[in-house]
Each structure stands twice: as structure tokens, then as C-alpha cells.
Nucleic acid binder design. Structure first.
Length: 757
DNA sequence: CAGATCACTTAGGAATGAGTCT
DNA sequence: AGACTCATTCCTAAGTGATCTG
């Protein structure tokens, strides 16, 4: 959303990243990684603002930042020395012996139960991974034997559960009531142990379920007309709108503060659709959107939000309970004997379409969905959901080859929207697990695939060369496949296969590097991808060839599309598609980075390391975010804290100095002691300062990087979980709490436990 | 076999909520 | 208590890729 995407310039370019994080040719490079990363960061930051109004500011920032980083680095080095030995010991003694060995037999976790085996020849993978994969493979052939899980595991599970519960009440002590009700609900919801779906057999016949029962969707509340004192003005004169026209007007009014409403396309689309909702009289009167005054409406809604915030605790509680009731009633379904959470049981309310980037349809009216638009999917022998009184469903079907419960067709693009289950559900979890298994299979043959596409660069056939170069980009840069899309229907964005000539620039030489390719295009969600990267000579020559006699708007890979590419990939490995490379490269990067970055024993340092590793992945995948609105301010606050700390430090140092001078003159015990105290004070303040500066670095580094997406979708949770013991975080330290700190997301947590066990 | 359709994953931003500071 | 901050959840758009269809 957000016009923010329009600000290409303010988005970060992706820097010349990746190439290192992703290196398979040169293992030594990896060692320098962190150092390089910093350099790269700086470069990236520099170019990021190169043509924006923030330039001056950001440059100053960077100087500061660099200082901080430097300190940060030396700090770490220092500590490293300290910890190095201990770490070694730990890893040795720790290894993965705690891991229940039987897990392997489930064909599941295939825990890297390695220990100190030497790294062998593979720098790309750790040997442990290799091992587990082999085992995995064997298991794969057998395919999902439901195995009995260990008793030991169950015990652990119970323990874990208890631990979790131990933590929870703390949070809620304030609110005994909720706590109780929560407890009851929980008791009701899960009378038995958590369902271990991953120990059960999967359907092999393509069906997704045998039984499915649910209550249908929750519809958007009907429109409530504005109170009569909230007026709309046209050309300065009050005008009472018909309810239909008024409703659409309120959609616009609610967005008045948003940049969208200033955009030509948005306004035109809106006005066109709005007129369709007007009565003939209204239509004839209202002919110019600029003469419409929605401010009273807008104020009214703002006041309402404000009032909602001001509500008393009791009122808020009431609303919460009511919401909870709805969730209880509609938020769950029964699928094959299990009650499962539904992800989005509410039907999307009407409103104005907010496309991302330069979307040609932004501002169009997204119409209200009625029961007559809705298709219900459930099993025949279930209690079918009832449509609201006086209405009918469009259709009730019983298709167990799909996972959705409800669908409807949306009016902007004519695409189908679905109501599906929560990520914690069996059906999603299985899919997710499969995804990572596929990525792990790729790991086993990726070398061969790489060898092949390199070979294909020399092919006599153009289409094969194009395919090979595209695949190289997908692998090396983690680009998306790039399906072609209908022109004029969506924002103009591309992926690998749909790159156009105008999206790359070739430099035989750039900044001392040979054969540099510059990418600059808008990808998914109109997020800018900018990267300059040296490529192999052959790739470069091929690109030159592909560019010959083409116009900027021509396809770079004119003999290639995603379906051709995926067909090829399918031949290389069963289940292989372009997106598997993203998953694989993201996860392997996490694993490598964790291994490389983690050196500290204490939890905060581990979390910082984890975040750094996570960040490397996010950069690889180009996961960006608009800098938080409050970013500059909070950065300033932090900076002033730092400044204050610096002053404090200066004072402390001065005092220390005078104390020393004092001691020199007097030479008595008292003054000596004073010196010691002052010394300590200085040290303490130095540490505090350091901490603040590290925090500032971390935040600055994270400014435009979104970590959530990779956490949720690309990082095999097993790496996180097994990475933790490997990093010598003690398991008894409640992995759950730690994970909460580290991962945040519910989803990864769920998986983590499910996989981890 | 190209284009359309369908199902499902991946994505960033807004809203909300919880926690912390003053 | 109110302001502020940060994390989480909600929302739904925008991708991928398989399959259908003419």
C-alpha cells in the first residue's frame, strides 16, 4: 500500500550484497564476511540516498554509524577472545546429544546430531546437515510412516508445556478474570496433548481432508449512516447524500490523510466508481471531486477512533469478550477430528482498493460481499453453515481436493479470495514442512545443477543459454521467477524471467571490478531491487548477446518464461521450481551466518547474532520496509541518550582525573579508594555507552529491512532450533522463551515445537 | 500449446496491544 | 495515568505454479 512504494528512492537498494553471503566458491571469503558486510552496508547506504533529499542527513548519520560499528566490532572481537575457549568446549561437549535420537526415525526432524566432525570438504553445507540429509533421503523413500513417538519426547513435551504455562500467568496477573476464562477455554480447546499431526500419515490420494465442518464466514457489519450533524459539502454547500453514495464517500473520507487521495489515478478511479453509487440527482450535481469536502466526515471518524481509545477498561473488556465470542463461534472449524483455527474467517469489508506501487486500479470501489457471492466448501456429512436469515449461498460444494472453506470472487481483478486455515493447522504445517524438505533435497543436488547451468552458458541454443543465465540469477541473487502479467491490470513489476532490457546495465568494468551487472527494477509489491554485482565473464558475454538489437522495453530473456524454466527444473529434480531456490538459499544462509556470527554466550548477544543472521537473509531476499514513521524520532531519542551518556562519561573521567591527582598529593587510603570507585564508575558508564551504541547500530541497520517475512516463510525452523544448542544456548533455558525473544512470530514457534520435538 | 483459471504462498503496511517510561 | 515505543496481529495484495480449456 502506501504510496510509499512510489518513493523508489527512499527504499533501500539491495546493495551489492548477496554475492558474499552466498558464496560457494570461496570459503575464505566467508570468514571476512562480517567485515565486508559493514563495508557493503556503508556502500549500500550511500547509494541508497544518492538521489534523495535525505542525502545530507544520511551521510552525517553514516559517519556516526561507522564509528559505532567500529566500536561494536572491536567490542566483539574483544569478547570473542574471552569466550573462544569456552565456546569450543561447549560445542564439543554440547553437540546434539540431547536430541532425541529417535526423531530421525520419524523421518521428520532428521536432526543434525552431529558433533564435532570436521568440516570436510563442504563449505556450503555443514557436514551435519549432509548427514541428516542422507538419512532423510532414506526415509523419504519410505514416505511418512507414522511412527510412535518416544515416551521421552512426550515427557519433554509435557515439561515444555508446563514451562510455558509457568510463564504465562505472570503476564496476566493483572487480569484475573481473563486469565480464568482463558484457562477454561484452553482446557476446553485442548483437553488432550497438542496434536502431533506430523506423526500421522498423510493422504496419498490428493484429498486434503475427509471431514470438514465450519460455521461459514463473518460478514462485514452493515453500513451505519452518519449522524445528521456530520455533513458533506459540495462546492461549499451542504449536501445530504443518499446512503449508498454516503457510504462510498466515507471510504474516501477515512483515507483523507493518506497520500493515496492525492494521486490522480486514485482520485479518478474513485470518482468514477463513486458516481456509479450516486442517485441521478447526485450524479448531476457532483461533477468535480475537488469540490467535495469530506473533512467533517474525516474528523468524525478520527473522533471515533479517539473515543475508542478513551474508553474505560470495562468497556474495552466487553468489546474484547464479544470479539472472543465471535472467534469462538466462527474462528474454528473441524477438519478430520480436529478443531483447527481459521486464518481469516471475516469477509473483506467494502472499501477502496489500495493497490501497491503504481497500480492502475487504485481507488476503485471494492464492493460489499453478500452471501449470494459466497461459495461454501465443507463435507457432505457435516452440518452445513447457514446463510444469514433471508439470504442464500451462491453454492455449497464438497470438494476435498482443496483446502479452502469459503471463497468469493473479488470485483477489482476478478480474482478469487479464500478463507483458509491458520498456519498452525495441520494442512498448512504439512505444506510448510514439505517446502523445507524440498529445499533440503535441492541441497543435495544443487552442486550438480550449478555445474549444469554453468555448462549451459556455452550451449549452442539461445533458449538454453537464456535459461541457464536466468537460473544463475535466481540461484545467486534469490530473484523470484517472474511470471508474466497482464499489462494495465496491475503495477508494472517484474521478476527474473520477465526482466526487460531496461532493467539491467552492463559494465565491463566498474569500480575496479570486471563484468559488473547493475539491476534496477521493481519487484513484488513494487519494492525496488537495486544491485550491482560482478558476474562471470561467460554470463556477461551472454547478457551482451541477449541485449543485441533490442529496445529497452523488450524482454531480456525473450526465449524464456517461468513455465519453460520450471519444466526444466522439474527434470533436474522432482518438485523443483524456481522458488525453491529462494527457500534453499535463505535457509542455508541463516545456517551459515549463525555458525559464523555466534560467539557470545549470553542471551542478548545470541539474539543480536540471530538478528544479524536473519538480516543477512532479509537482505538476500530483498525484504524491505518503509522506515517506521517514528524512526527518526526514536533514533534521535536514542542519540540524545547516547550524548547524555557521553557527557556523563566525560564528567566521570574528569572526576577520576582529579581524584587521581588528589591521590598523588595525599597518598592516603581514602583517596586511593576514591580513585578506585571513580574508575569503576567510568567503566560502568563506558559499558552503558557501548550498549546504547550497539543498540543504535542494530536499529539503524534494521531501518529498512523487514525481518518478519523471512522468519515466517523462508527459514527452516529446525535451523533456528538446532542452531540454538549448536550455539550453545542451553536447552534448559526454556527454549520457548528464548524463541519468543528471537522469533517473535507465532507461526515459527508453532513449527519450531512441532519440528523440534 | 497459449492463455485463463484456480489454489495456494509470500508480502508489506495498518491497527492493535503490551510494555515501559515519565 | 498518560505518552510513548515496540512487537504482534490483522489485513489483503501480489506473487508462484499447477491445471484446465479451447
Amino acid at each position: 500500500m502506501s504510496g510509499d512504494h512510489g518513493h523508489k528512492d527512499s527504499k533501500i537498494d539491495s546493495g551489492s550484497r548477496v554475492n558474499e553471503s552466498h558464496k560457494h566458491k570461496d570459503k575464505h571469503k566467508d570468514k571476512e564476511h562480517r567485515h565486508k558486510d559493514h563495508k557493503k552496508d556503508r556502500e549500500r547506504e550511500k547509494s541508497k540516498y544518492s538521489n534523495s533529499e535525505h542525502k545530507e542527513f544520511s551521510e552525517k548519520k553514516h559517519r556516526d554509524k561507522d564509528k559505532v560499528k567500529h566500536k561494536d566490532g572491536s567490542l566483539e572481537r574483544h569478547k570473542e577472545k574471552h569466550k573462544e575457549k569456552r565456546k569450543e568446549e561447549k560445542i564439543k561437549s554440547f553437540s546434539f546429544d540431547e536430541k532425541p535420537k529417535k526423531e530421525k526415525e520419524n523421518g521428520f526432524a532428521s536432526p543434525p546430531r552431529i558433533k564435532t566432525e570436521t568440516d570436510g570438504d563442504s563449505f556450503y553445507y555443514s557436514p551435519k546437515y549432509e548427514k541428516s540429509l542422507k538419512r532423510e533421503h532414506d526415509d523419504d523413500d519410505i514416505e511418512f510412516k507414522p511412527k510412535k513417538i518416544k515416551v521421552e519426547n512426550e515427557k519433554k513435551a509435557k515439561k515444555r508445556k508446563q514451562e510455558e504455562e509457568d510463564i504465562e500467568p505472570k503476564k496476566k496477573t493483572k487480569d484475573k478474570k481473563t486469565d480464568e476464562t482463558d484457562g477454561k477455554k484452553k482446557a476446553k480447546k485442548e483437553p488432550e496433548e497438542k496434536w502431533k499431526w506430523w506423526e500421522e500419515e498423510r493422504y496419498t490420494d490428493g484429498s486434503k481432508w475427509k471431514f470438514l465442518e465450519h460455521k461459514g464466514p463473518v460478514f462485514a457489519p452493515p453500513y451505519e449512516p452518519l449522524p445528521s450533524n456530520v455533513k458533506f459539502y459540495y462546492d461549499g454547500k451542504h449536501m445530504k447524500l443518499s446512503p449508498q453514495a454516503e457510504e462510498v464517500a466515507t471510504f474516501f473520507a477515512k483515507m483523507l490523510d493518506h497520500e493515496y487521495t492525492t494521486k490522480e489515478v486514485f482520485r479518478n478511479n474513485f470518482f468514477k466508481d463513486w458516481k456509479k453509487e450516486m442517485t441521478p440527482e447526485e450524479k448531476s450535481k457532483i461533477t468535480n471531486l475537488s469540490k467535495c469536502d469530506f473533512t467533517e466526515m474525516s474528523e468524525y471518524f478520527k473522533a471515533q477512533t479517539e473515543a475508542r481509545k478513551q474508553m474505560s477498561k470495562e468497556e474495552k473488556q466487553k468489546i474484547k469478550e464479544e470479539n472472543e465470542r465471535i472467534v469462538q463461534e466462527y474462528g474454528f472449524c473441524v477438519m478430520d477430528n480436529h478443531k483447527e483455527r481459521i486464518a481469516n474467517f471475516r469477509i473483506e469489508p467494502p472499501g477502496l482498493f489500495r493497490g501497491r506501487g503504481d497500480h492502475p486500479k487504485m481507488g476503485m470501489l471494492k464492493r460489499r460481499i453478500r452471501p449470494e457471492d459466497v461459495i461454501i466448501n465443507c463435507s457432505k456429512d457435516s452440518k452445513h453453515p447457514k446463510p444469514p436469515p433471508g439470504t442464500k449461498w451462491k453454492e455449497v460444494r464438497h470438494d476435498n481436493k482443496v483446502t479452502w472453506l469459503v471463497s468469493w470472487t473479488e470485483n477489482i481483478q476478478g480474482s478469487i479470495k479464500y478463507i483458509m486455515l491458520n498456519p498452525s493447522s495441520r494442512i498448512k504445517g504439512e505444506k510448510d514442512w514439505q517446502k523445507y524438505e524440498t529445499a533440503r533435497r535441492l541441497k543435495k543436488c544443487v552442486d550438480q545443477i550449478r555445474a549444469q547451468y554453468r555448462d549451459d552458458w556455452k550451449s549452442k541454443e539461445m533458449r538454453i543459454r537464456q535459461r541457464a543465465v536466468a537460473l544463475y540469477f535466481i540461484d545467486k541473487l534469490a530473484l523470484r521467477a517472474g511470471n508474466e502479467k497482464e499489462e494495465g491490470e496491475t503495477a508494472d513489476t517484474v521478476g527474473c524471467c520477465s526482466l526487460r532490457v531496461e532493467h539491467i546495465k552492463l559494465y565491463p568494468e566498474l569500480n575496479g571490478q570486471e563484468f559488473v551487472v547493475e539491476f534496477d527494477f521493481l519487484g513484488k509489491d513494487s519494492i525496488r531491487y537495486y544491485n550491482t554485482i560482478p558476474v562471470e565473464k561467460r554470463v556477461f558475454k551472454n547478457l551482451q548477446l541477449f541485449l543485441e538489437n533490442k529496445q529497452p522495453e523488450d524482454d531480456l530473456f525473450d526465449r524464456l518464461n517461468t513455465s519453460i524454466l520450471n519444466k526444466h527444473l522439474q527434470e533436474l529434480m522432482d518438485g523443483l521450481t524456481a522458488k525453491v531456490f529462494r527457500t534453499y538459499n535463505a535457509s542455508i544462509t541463516l545456517q551459515q551466518q549463525l555458525k559464523e556470527l555466534t560467539s557470545e554466550d549470553n542471551t542478548p548477544a545470541k539474539i543480536l547474532s540471530y538478528n544479524r543472521a536473519n538480516r543477512a537473509v532479509a537482505i538476500l531476499c530483498n525484504h524491505q520496509r518503509a522506515p517506521p514513521k517514528t524512526f527518526e524520532k526514536s533514533m534521535q531519542n536514542l542519540q540524545s541518550k547516547i550524548d547524555a551518556k557521553k557527557d556523563q562519561l566525560a564528567d566521570a573521567r574528569r572526576e577520576l582525573k582529579s581524584a587521581k591527582a588528589d591521590a598523588k598529593v595525599r597518598k592516603d587510603e581514602k583517596t586511593k579508594k576514591a580513585v578506585e570507585t571513580k574508575k569503576k564508575a567510568v567503566q560502568r558508564i563506558e559499558e552503558q555507552l557501548m550498549k546504547l551504541e550497539v543498540q543504535a547500530t542494530d536499529r539503524e541497520e534494521n531501518k529498512q529491512i523487514a525481518l518478519g517475512t523471512s522468519k515466517l516463510n523462508y527459514l527452516d525452523p529446525r535451523i533456528t532450533v538446532y542452531g540454538i544448542p549448536a550455539l550453545s544456548i542451553h536447552r534448559k533455558f526454556r527454549v520457548s522463551t528464548l524463541l519468543k525473544d528471537i522469533t517473535g512470530g507465532v507461526r515459527i514457534q508453532t513449527q519450531v515445537f512441532q519440528f523440534a520435538r
